[in-house]
Design a protein around this nucleic acid. Structure first.
Lengths: 335, 335
DNA sequence: GTGAAAGCGCTAACAT
DNA sequence: ATGTTAGCGCTTTCAC
């Protein structure tokens, strides 16, 4: 193995000089600098990560804690991961892959051994036993998604409330006056989760604000349930001409359900979804996307900022972006 | 931070004793052992990973090099990753996530800095510039998938030749005598890839062995092309009663194409696919699976074995497993 | 602008 | 069965 001493000897300087050339932490004459650089290249020198970590108390690695269980929507997760790695590499950091099933104990181990400088945690739940731990770790962490009860932690998420509102605004601008909301399974609303409620709250208050009649119902993930919910919405609000859907699993049944009830999309009922862009693209639905790359980039940047001693806002909400597609006609069905 | 010296002081022993309790590399009286263990728990001690890496020249981390580009079938990749992490953790190792786009240079950096003890590389191509590099690294590596020109490297893969043969055997056992093979796009066969050819070779020679007439054609990923290929197969072999499909993207069009040509699955034509189990399950196709977990486990175990100085077989081929589903009726269509 | 040397926390001889 | 100590390779005072 080639060490800093080898390089120093080869370049005819002291080891510390080599170190300073590498870190740029003090001025070096351009002569020695290039001498050293040549030796480094020639010998193929790479600083030993462990030694550096020991000396600086920094590993230049960040932990990415992923929910790798069935049910997560992989295309989004994958884009997210890619963006995290890219952003981290941009700052000369690497990424340690930690599965959520390693639990709080796993995080404690990794933190305690100083393997990483910080944590990026996805899919944190409200009563997550990792949250109190993360708060007391030496290393900073950034949580992505549902902010939970996260005083003292840094969180990044899509602004679901604004997302719900954005859907209403889009439809209202198209002239719709009676809008329905097809939500997640009721169980999701029961055990909090936050993002589901926030999307609906955003929807409702935007509707109020714009003087639009709105009705909301949850829907389970099967066709029957979707049909029932849609029928329920239409019964309550027969003049309904638009539907906001915040339920990925139900998405596939919505058009069919509406058609079964005699309504066509978008002629009779316009549809806006809050869902990953892949799904919306595939079904040609107007939608508010889940901005995976942006979330990842933002979260990683925030974490790195904190590593550098900067303090960050406790909560960063990304503005929703709506993509118009075939499921909302440019003009309202009935004026 | 709590160090080994703190623990030693607290337990009233020498640092080395604490170390030996941890590593088990020499016998310790059960008294001191439990004294030390108590102190460790009490103080919440975790050995500093960097320090340990520096002292032992082992990081207890392995690099997982993933193709995170569009086109990879994510459910399989995800299962693979999960299994790698699980297996690694079983051996007290962690996993550093490396994206394939970091290239050979990225691997050199990571290897050079001794950040990892070994490499697990997915999706290696035949003329891959990482292969010569991997061969000359200090750290061992295991390649998963297409073994390429990998003298001196350890490779793990599904036995695609046996997979092709297994399909034939299954169909032959059901009484089929005229079998077609619908392959990957022709470009895949042109530029090597190995696994595609091997599957087809296995198919052909098994057919010969069992005295069965076989025809093979490539297929592109669109409906038109699939239809054309299927028509071609039927023209060559009008008595064809079974089809082996090794083309995930074409899978969705096969049943439709056959029906358009007046054949029903499985009554007129039985279908066996070589594809991820999720897809086969979803379409109710008899299939030979891609055993992601097994591959991952095997590859990881091999890598760790090599880390422990054991030498391993250069090539491990996993036997194919066929799952019978609705697309092959229990009896042949025409006897 | 550059060197010398003292650690960082741990392991593994070498002691006893 | 346990203690002492010399590094592992790097950074960073301190000295010039």
């Amino acid at each position: 193995m080639v060490t800093i001493a080898d390089v120093a000897r080869h370049a005819g300087v002291a080891p510390s000089t080599v170190s300073y050339v590498l870190t740029g932490k003090r001025s070096i004459s351009s002569q020695t600098r290039s001498k050293v650089r040549d030796s480094i290249r020639l010998l193929g020198y790479h600083p030993h990560a462990g030694a550096r970590a020991l000396a600086t108390n920094r590993s230049n690695v960040l932990a990415l804690v992923l929910p790798l269980r069935p049910g997560v929507y992989l295309p989004v997760l994958m884009r997210f991961v890619t963006a995290v790695v890219t952003t981290a590499r941009w700052h000369d950091m690497d990424v340690l892959l930690v599965t959520a099933d390693q639990g709080a104990q796993g995080l404690r181990r990794i933190a305690g051994s100083a393997q990483v400088d910080g944590f990026l945690v996805l899919d944190v739940e409200l009563d997550d036993d990792r949250v109190p731990l993360l708060r007391h770790l030496t290393q900073p962490s950034v949580l992505i998604g549902r902010p939970a009860a996260a005083k003292g932690l840094t969180c990044v998420d899509l602004d679901f409330e604004a997302a719900g509102a954005r859907c209403v605004d889009h439809l209202a601008d198209l002239g719709h006056r009676y809008i329905g909301f097809l939500g997640a399974p009721s169980v999701v609303y029961q055990r909090n989760t936050g993002y589901a409620q926030r999307a609906m709250a955003g929807f409702s208050s935007a509707a109020m604000r714009r003087g639009i009649a709105s009705t909301a119902l949850p829907a389970e993930d099967d066709y029957e349930s979707v049909l029932t919910s849609v029928r329920g919405l239409l019964r309550t609000q027969p003049a309904m001409t638009a539907l906001v859907v915040h339920n990925e699993a139900a998405l596939g049944w919505v058009a069919g359900g509406l058609r079964a009830l005699g309504r066509r999309v978008p002629e009779d009922v316009a549809v806006v979804a809050i869902c990953p862009d892949e799904l919306a693209e595939q079904m040609q639905l107007t939608s508010v996307q889940l901005p995976a790359e942006q979330l990842a980039r933002q979260a990683t940047e925030l974490l790195i900022a904190r590593l550098n001693g900067l303090s960050t806002a406790p909560l960063t909400l990304l503005p929703p972006k709506l993509s118009s597609r075939a499921s909302t006609s440019p003009r309202p069905p009935r004026g």
